[in-house]
């Protein structure tokens, strides 16, 4: 969903740029609470993985493709504020070196791919986690559901930005229908990748996963802890 230069007018791009700059500034301060000596390297690796995964466009039919956005995946693994930093780094490198996403559109892309997918992904994840059993097994499936919903959410926000600041005279309803329709399909890929990656890290080292904090593992050690607790 990398927005190129030219799709949105200057005022809209300035506004999204300001929102992105403020969000990154806040994230730099808030991420401290999510990062320690062990999880800081994980944040770098999650960002690197998201960059790599975004290169993999998977076909979704009719000559269209999609790729991971990664906000939900990163938020569950390393925390939402750190996820904003991870995704912003990915988008900065893509825009500067690969010309993937415009430079005047960098703020727009940070808002859509960095903020919206992270906020919706983490919001849905936290909500579902709160109402489901506090077990480690819920993390990957719940992350997948959150990842799925984060994709049409970003498509909706793009449509909103386009309605406000789109430079081409295109009917908003047509953009809304097409964006939502395609991204409801692309979201399935987002959910699948998120399920596999989060599931693998949770299986290996649940203690490092931000979204697994405070959850129980079905193991002898946990059972012993419960007995002594």
């Amino acid at each position: 969903m990398h927005v190129p230069d030219g799709f949105l007018d200057a005022p809209t791009s300035v506004a999204t740029g300001a929102v992105a700059a403020i969000a990154v500034g806040v994230a730099l301060r808030k991420a401290k609470g999510e990062l320690d000596d062990r999880t800081a390297p994980l944040a770098g690796l999650v960002a690197a993985f998201v960059f790599a995964a975004q290169m993999i466009n998977f076909p979704v039919g009719a000559g269209t493709s999609g790729h991971l956005m990664g906000g939900a995946l990163a938020a569950v693994l390393v925390g939402p504020w750190t996820a904003v930093l991870c995704l912003s780094t990915v988008l900065l490198v893509q825009g500067l070196l690969m010309a993937d996403g415009g430079l005047t559109a960098l703020g727009t892309n940070i808002v859509l791919i960095g903020l919206v997918t992270t906020a919706v992904g983490w919001g849905v994840f936290a909500l579902l986690r709160a109402v489901l059993p506090k077990r480690i097994g819920v993390v990957a499936p719940v992350a997948a559901v959150a990842a799925y919903l984060s994709v049409p959410a970003a498509a909706l926000v793009f449509t909103g930005l386009f309605a406000v600041g789109g430079t081409a005279p295109v009917e908003n309803g047509a953009v809304l229908t097409a964006m939502l329709g395609w991204h409801l399909v692309i979201g399935l890929g987002e959910a699948a990748v998120t399920f596999v990656v989060v599931g693998a890290v949770v299986a290996a080292r649940p203690d490092l996963v931000h979204g697994a904090r405070g959850l129980r593992r079905p193991s002898r050690a946990t059972a012993a802890e419960e007995v002594t607790a």
């Binding site: 320690d36 390297p41 390393v78 930093l85 490198v93």
Partner: peptide, 13 residues
Amino acid sequence: VLLVAGGAAWVVR
């Protein structure tokens, strides 16, 4: 990306 994001995370941890 690993260096920039990991470096930022290391600085703010």
